[in-house]
Design a protein around this nucleic acid. Structure first.
Ligand SMILES: [Mn+2]
Ligand SMILES: [Mn+2]
Ligand SMILES: [Mn+2]
Ligand SMILES: [Mn+2]
Lengths: 236, 236
DNA sequence: GCGTATGTTTAGGTATGCCGAAATACTCCT
DNA sequence: AGGAGTATTTCGGCATACCTAAACATACGC
């Protein structure tokens, strides 16, 4: 029979879980296909297998959700992925835009023992290099209460809490402009139709100004620090 | 077409290489099947693929040897395997009997970048936890001039240079009796037909005596230190 | 309500890597 | 040289996880 330690099964479940981590609505077959870079028909087949395995629920033509067992597996895989990323950055000198692909493969090959010993060596980190929370061995996870950067009004200060690691180029760009985890930002204005967001980076006197396009804005999640007096900027 | 980064191809090539590392004669199909725990017919098929890939030479019904390209791949895999084992012991607190299986999977999932950064972090080790030499990135390897323990005459002193990691139970037993890499041994006698070897462990005054059976003796490779005066024991 | 666009599933097929059973070659002993 | 026994290969099949093309459902606009 099928088995829970096929890397395909693991990636499917992890992706289904990941879709709802920073958003509400469950994933559909075609969205899953895009994220996994496989054909729609492959998803149909694999999801049927997940249902057989008791990992997912799926009514024909409906969205795909995880059962408790599937959620547990998804969280376990996310834990693996994020601990490995943390190790690569903290101990092997990787930059945060290099770690995702490496972790994507390694997560399937390490043992539970490896993960727990790694966790110990890393000092039980609570978030990965991109700010994503690391579940406990029992599957407990605490989402930082961050919001997307573009949900902030102009004049708001915020601290970067999480950057989506979907696109390495985005990560590279941000790092190149001194934007990282916990970097303070000030939303100073936006272009027409909210297309471009202008932010000041840092809180010191020599803070640079950045124009962030759609994909960059969508990748940045921040913890709001309220309005900084004297820095308010009129909303357009 | 076929590809060099299938984990099966890598394991086959690594195993073919490994067979001649501490011994002369090339491997045969059925020996390869035993080592890989697959059926003989699987070996026939896979070896044909290796030949197609330019990694191995094989005449029907003959032994299997590596081409230069195959040797390079074998050495690269051995390098990966041994660096990973070293990391597990040095940084994650694994014991030397636990690392083999973990490395057997990990070796296929890490990138070249990972391996070189790991090598750097480990300080460019020259041997793994079992005393096996670690090839350089260019495939250079220097075999320690060790001999099998049972090739020593009684009364000889020696230092453990390498222990075969084929059998975790052997490793566990030896560690439990204070035998590790570089442990000094004194061959003090042997049973009838050379079946059992008696060795004194350590060189201090409180050295324990061990009776080593066939598998243990075969697993131990030592560097001879010549005969220690005053400790010579008559050969039976 | 009806048709069409979109999303999803079905059907048929490919590649990889394994298996057991049957056929075939080699080896060694007499 | 012949035959027995062993090693190896061939053959047909299976499981996994993909694919494309075609069939089919659903949802939406008119
Ligand atoms: Mn993955
Ligand atoms: Mn991450
Ligand atoms: Mn392996
Ligand atoms: Mn080893």
């Amino acid at each position: 029979m099928h088995s829970i330690d096929s890397s395909s099964v693991q990636d499917y479940v992890k992706t289904i879980y990941g879709f709802t981590e920073w958003q509400e609505t469950p994933i559909t077959a075609s969205q899953l296909a895009v994220r996994l870079a496989v054909a729609n028909s492959s998803v149909t087949g694999m999801v049927a297998k997940l249902v057989e395995l008791g990992l997912a629920r799926h009514e024909k033509y409906g969205p795909i959700t995880l059962t408790p067992a599937g959620l547990a597996l998804g969280l376990a895989m996310v834990r693996r992925h994020r601990l490995i990323e943390t190790f690569l950055v903290d101990h092997l000198g990787y930059s945060w835009d290099e770690v995702h692909d490496e972790a994507e493969l390694l997560e399937h090959s390490v043992s539970d023992t490896f993960i727990e010993r790694l966790d110990r060596k890393l000092g039980h980190p609570v978030r990965d290099p991109h700010g994503d929370p690391i579940p406990t061995p029992n599957g407990l996870i605490s989402r930082p209460d961050a919001v997307r950067l573009d949900s902030l009004d102009d004049g708001h200060r915020a601290r970067v809490a999480r950057i989506s690691d979907d696109n390495p180029a985005v990560l590279k760009f941000l790092a190149g402009h001194a934007v990282g985890l916990d970097t303070p930002l000030l939303v100073s204005g936006r272009g027409p139709f909210g297309a471009l967001l202008t932010v000041a980076v840092g809180d010191g006197p020599g803070s640079a100004t950045l124009q962030l396009g759609g994909e960059l804005v969508a990748a940045l999640w921040v913890e709001s620090l309220g309005t900084h007096e004297g820095c308010t900027v009129a909303t357009v």
